[in-house]
């Protein structure tokens, strides 16, 4: 029984982290079809934004305020990553729509540049971010099961981000414009929707969510300039497995990978577990190349 609870919680925790790093990509890759290899570096930017925010709080704020830095850092990471994503879209990606290979190479190059810039500013070694004290410790369910607050916090954070995205995409005027542009760019333009502005905004939002993911990752360990490269493969796996174009698919993809990963790791080792998960994904995509949740093809005609 205890084993099962722990398994489920670990699975959920891994899934929530996967989902958080993949959600931004679900927007830029899933909705806009841009293969954004710099997604990992946007995560890195979010992580360093948190580091800088923490530094600023230590330097300029009263000590008693330190614990609130993390809330501010979430906002700062979102804004900084969104701004950089917006610039990236305006300067580079805008000119590469409909050319997936070119945008793949170009964003990969941008990713490496961003990594070097981070090395230049913050140095090559990893830096540690001190978690706020209210996230230390854990929730004791029984005497032997303690659920760490940090992991619980990430699960809640993912749920919040997901809800906010859902409301934005499906309930606001901007979200409606965004869906219209993604479904039929020409017609959206003929209705007076500024497709350029929508593209820029959408990419900025996807990037901002990557920034939030970076902020959350500082809770789990030290961060470095190449932190993004660890996560980019997982992020693409989640989005591709989930099926391009629907948020619910990304959620399903993250849950699937997270749960199976934890399960396999319990009975084998960490690396064998990962191999098994990837093998399963490859097999699954052979069977269903469009992923778990595919858009109905007829309505795409």
């Amino acid at each position: 029984m205890e084993m099962t609870i722990l398994q489920v919680f670990n699975g959920l925790s891994v899934s929530s982290i996967l989902l958080l790093i993949a959600l931004g990509l679900a927007v830029t890759f899933g909705l806009m079809n841009v293969i954004n290899m710099a997604h990992g570096e946007l995560i890195m930017i979010g992580a360093y934004s948190t580091y800088v925010t923490q530094g600023l709080f230590t330097a300029y704020m009263p000590k008693s305020w330190f614990d609130t830095y993390f809330i501010a850092a979430l906002l700062v990471s979102f804004v900084v990553a969104a701004l950089i994503g917006w610039l990236l879209e305006m300067i580079l990606i805008r000119h590469l729509y409909g050319r997936p290979l070119d945008s793949l190479l170009a964003t990969w190059g941008v990713g490496m540049m961003l990594q070097q810039i981070a090395r230049f500013i913050f140095g090559a070694p990893n830096v540690a971010v001190t978690s706020p004290s209210w996230l230390n410790g854990g929730l004791a369910i029984t005497s032997s099961i303690v659920l760490p607050y940090k992991r619980l916090f990430i699960i809640v954070l993912v749920a919040l981000v997901l809800t906010a995205m859902y409301l934005y995409i499906y309930r606001t005027v901007q979200g409606r414009r965004m869906r219209a542009v993604m479904q039929n760019r020409n017609m959206a333009g003929c209705l007076g929707i500024s497709t350029r502005r929508v593209d820029g905004l959408t990419f900025a939002i996807g990037s901002g969510i990557a920034g939030i993911a970076g902020c959350a990752l500082t809770l789990l360990g030290p961060i470095g300039p190449s932190i993004g490269t660890y996560y980019i493969v997982d992020a693409f796996m989640v989005v591709v497995l989930g099926g391009v174009g629907k948020l619910i698919g990304t959620v399903a993809g993250a849950l699937g990978i997270g749960m199976f990963n934890t399960l396999f790791e319990t009975y084998t080792s960490a690396s064998i577990g990962k191999v098994l998960v990837f093998a399963l994904i490859v097999a699954f995509l052979q069977w269903k190349p469009r992923g778990l949740v595919a858009l109905r093809t007829r309505s795409l005609d």
Partner: peptide, 17 residues
Amino acid sequence: EIFPQLTVKENLLLGLE
């Protein structure tokens, strides 16, 4: 060129853009 994944109401409201 109706937006296929949008509801009829959403399609109509886009006409106000």
